[in-house]
Each structure stands twice: as C-alpha cells, then as structure tokens.
C-alpha cells in the first residue's frame, strides 16, 4: 500500500509540473494568439460570412444571397478584366523583377567599388512612398511635357501616352512595379550571395570551372535556391497585391485597362459600398493566392533545400 502510494505520488508530481508548464506555455502564447484571433481569424471569418450577403456599408441590415455574389462576379466584365490584368501584370513584373534583382546583385557583388552606394541607390524605390512618387511618375510619363517622351523625341522616337492609352497603361504600371520590386529583390539576393561559402568557389576553381557562367551554374544559382524561392514567392505576392500605383495613377482607367483585383475590391467595397460583393472578391483572391503559394512552394521547395 505504502509503496503504491509513493509510486502514485512520484507519478503525480511530474503530471502537476506538466500541467503548470502547459499553463505557462498558453500564457506566453496568449498575446500572439489573441492578436491572431482578433486581427486575422475573426476578420477572415467575418469576410467569409459577408461574401454570401448583400451587405452594403451603412445599410441597417443584409440579406443572404447564397452564391449570388459569385455568379454575378463571373459575369462582371470589370472583374474579369481585372483578373486578366492582374495575371498579365504578375507574369510581367514577377519574373522580370526577380531576374533584374539577381542580375544587379551579381554585378554589385562582382564589382569592387561602390557596393554600399549602389545598394542604397537600387533600394531607394522600396523605401520611397508610392503615393508620394505618383506625382513624379505622372509627370515623367506625361505624354506632352514628360521627360521620358522628351528624351524619346530627342532620339527621334514618338513616345506613347504611357498612362492614358489603354494599350500601354498596364505596361507602364508594370515597369513602375519592376522599379519598385527589383531593388527589394536585389537586397535579398545580396544577402543570399554573401551567405554562399567562399570555399565552394575555390572548390569550383580547383575542379576546373572556369567561366563566370559555369561558376554561376555550378555554385551561385543552386546555392541561391532558398533565397530565390523566397524572392519568387514574395515578389509574386507583392505583384498580385498591386494597388497603390493603380489607385494613385490610373484608378483602373482608361476604360478598365488597368483595373486590377485589389483595386476592384477597393472600389466595390469603399467607393460603391457593396461590402458583400467586395468580400466575395476578397475571398476568391485569398483562395487563389493561397493555392498559388502552396503550388509554388511544393514545386520549388523540393528543388532548393538539399536535405
């Protein structure tokens, strides 16, 4: 009996300690958990609920409309146009700004002087406020008094109406997007490059890897794998989320030529006050982005982490 009691006691002690640890763990995790629930989970759930209603901002109530918002979206010229525009924008901006960021990073890394200067120079677009830059861009790309077209005229080229022409507006926004993203990617790539062990380059030299291209293929590119995966995902997300240049420069115009998903979401919700409809767009957007990220991660992750 006595023996059994002692055994029970010795067993109970760790159990109590375990319970205490659990409580402390929850306590420590509480701020983050609460913030997550309050800032992300609850709004997301509210969004999902809203997406199936006709709620309008300021309206006293709402009706359930089931999939009504979604069927309307599928027939909404503006929405379909904005999906197509966003896809084009991402397909243009993401690859080019990743490649450009990498190329400039390699040039800066390979160069001997002015590394800090160039890094700061190319990073500038990232820290500059797009809204503040909007006036500058609208002036630079001005069809008649803009410096860009003046420059083109000087070399005998007729410049375009960059932001006013439905044929060039998406291209112009894309170039601005690349300008904004390449510097960001550049800094990430520079960090990735400095993390590559110097020994690998020495080993490659010993192994007879002579040209810069072979060195890039043998060492640099594979070693940048995890960085590249991160950069590609971040850039894709940033490109999909394009909003501020559109809002400040074109507001989706002319005639929806630069309408993008987030801007549609914004105008539906906050200009047209159709919160339910806007929530439906947001929901589709969230699902699409999540799926895209998962696929990207699955596809690339296996190739870049050499475990």
């Amino acid at each position: 009996m006595a023996e059994a009691a002692t055994i029970a006691q010795t067993r109970a002690a760790p159990a109590r300690r375990h319970a205490g640890e659990t409580a402390v763990a929850w306590l420590l995790a509480a701020p983050a958990t609460l913030a997550y629930v309050a800032m992300i989970l609850v709004p997301s759930l509210a969004l999902v609920v809203l997406a199936f209603t006709d709620y309008e901002l300021g309206a006293p109530g709402f009706r359930w409309v089931g999939l009504g918002n979604f069927t309307e979206l599928m027939a909404d010229r503006g929405f379909l146009r904005s999906v197509a525009n966003t896809a084009l924008y991402v397909l243009f901006v993401a690859p080019v700004s990743v490649a450009l960021g990498l190329a400039i990073a390699l040039l800066i890394e390979g160069g001997r002087r002015g590394r800090a200067l160039f890094r700061a120079l190319f990073f500038l677009p990232v820290v500059s406020l797009t809204v503040a830059m909007a006036t500058a861009w609208s002036y630079i790309l001005h069809p008649t008094i803009g410096p860009l077209n003046a420059l083109l005229r000087a070399v005998g080229i007729d410049g375009a109406n960059w932001l006013g022409d439905s044929g060039t507006v998406l291209l112009s926004l894309g170039l601005i997007g690349i300008w904004e993203n390449a510097g960001f990617n550049l800094v990430l790539f520079l960090a990735g490059l400095t993390a590559i062990p110097r020994d690998l380059y020495a080993a490659a030299e010993m192994d007879g890897v002579k040209s810069a291209w072979d060195r890039f293929v043998t060492v640099t590119w594979p070693m940048l794998g995890p960085t590249t995966l991160f950069v590609v995902i971040i850039t894709t997300v940033r490109a999909i989320r394009v909003f501020d240049t559109v809002a400040t420069l074109t507001q989706g115009g002319p005639n929806k030529a630069s309408e993008v998903i987030l801007f549609t979401m914004y105008t539906e919700g906050f200009s047209f006050f159709r919160m339910g409809y806007s929530a439906a767009i947001t929901l589709l957007f969230l699902v699409a982005v999540t799926v895209l990220m998962l696929v990207q991660n699955r596809l690339i992750d296996r190739r870049v982490h050499y475990g």
Binding site: P197, L200, A202, E205, M206, K210, V219, Y306
Partner: peptide
Amino acid sequence: LRGADRNVAMVFQSYALYPHM
C-alpha cells in the same frame, strides 16, 4: 596560371561539397 589550369586538386577543411549534387 589560374587555379583551374594548374592540374592541382584540393581538399578543404569544410569539404566544400556541392550540396545540390
């Protein structure tokens, strides 16, 4: 001559193996 042209082989302290290969 550069290292690649010397027909010299080197073994590194860190091994310097290519992790993706």
